[in-house]
Design a protein around this nucleic acid. Structure first.
Lengths: 174, 174
DNA sequence: TGCAATGTAAAACGATCGTTTTACATAAGT
DNA sequence: ACTTATGTAAAACGATCGTTTTACATTGCA
């Protein structure tokens, strides 16, 4: 495991658990097991590190939602929260924490959310056999809602969203 | 307008727009138009101020969702985002920013989310004529999802959630 | 008139922030 | 054997953090 991977993984963990602003660089160097000199040589800055964390997380997330049905989409979310926990969307949280004023972060978030939105549209279209932007928007809302409600309601929100989506898709099909 | 009200209002605005951690006390004193001495005499600490902001916001929010139907619930959310904007849920954001490690904040968030969950259950029960916890969970997910998806998709997510909820309620009724 | 109360302005507190630098060790490549 | 790369440990940078304090002004009530 090279230094880049180790650093990115440690940073994602700390930023996700304690927040971006609340995580100091000293804690980061300790968790990554490297000196601050090496850290900065590798990451450039704290904001750039966060941007890289988000890009890597986007890669991992988007790989998990490469599915053909809406049902599989929420099954993927069930897996995701089982593996990653329920702390809300790190992308939206990063943007909110920085007020959208850190360009590198804001861009990574925008890119992810655009890709996510496009993917939902594709999944709905594949599942339904035709495009349905209105249904796609509802599925997106359910997905986002399950993610955030899970913070205080637990993983049951994902099955609730899955069931709701199934009803909406069935209705759109007939 | 007394000092307490002015301070709480200014704090809510800054915390909401720029984040809790990113907002310094100097910016707060300037926005509230008072010296730091008066501010601390009034608020005690930054965390206590945030807790007060959340309590006040809970009061304002809960007053807006004193409704009898699921449809009116999402109409209330439409009003809310028109007035307050789309920056996600300040309660979840505060908790995430502090990693849940600030008791005063964590408690205010927990209290709000519990009250919110109970209210959704009441609205669904009133609208449906009977309790339906599963439907209530779905409505909660749609509400939370509309709130957070609106950050990058705009207020249209609220009408999408409203339409989806109407379908789910109609189905539960028959 | 004089005493509290309540406010401001501003300096100071120690701590911590993100970042850079200095000084030194190790290991690989020619 | 000498250079280059890559790392550590630790001090230092100036800035900013949340908070307290000092010194002084204003106001309302006895």
């Amino acid at each position: 495991m090279d230094m880049t991977t180790k650093l990115t993984a440690a940073a994602e963990r700390l930023f996700d658990r304690h927040g971006y602003m609340a995580t100091g660089m000293d804690r980061l160097t300790e968790a990554a097991g490297m000196s601050s000199r090496t850290l900065y040589k590798n990451a450039g800055s704290k904001a750039a590190l966060m941007a890289r964390v988000l890009t890597e997380r986007d890669r991992r997330f988007m790989a998990r939602v490469e599915v053909r049905t809406v049902d599989a989409l929420f099954a993927a979310l069930e897996d995701w929260v089982r593996v990653e926990g329920c702390r809300g969307c790190l992308f939206l949280r990063s943007r909110a924490e920085t007020g959208g004023d850190t360009p590198e972060i804001a861009e990574a978030v925008a890119a992810h959310k655009e890709a996510f939105h496009r993917r939902i549209g594709e999944v709905v279209a594949t599942d339904l056999g035709r495009e349905d932007p209105a249904l796609a928007e509802q599925v997106l809302v359910l997905f986002e809602g399950a993610t955030h409600a899970a913070v205080y309601r637990g993983a049951q929100t994902v099955s609730a969203a899955k069931a709701a989506a199934a009803i909406l898709v069935a209705r759109a099909r007939s």
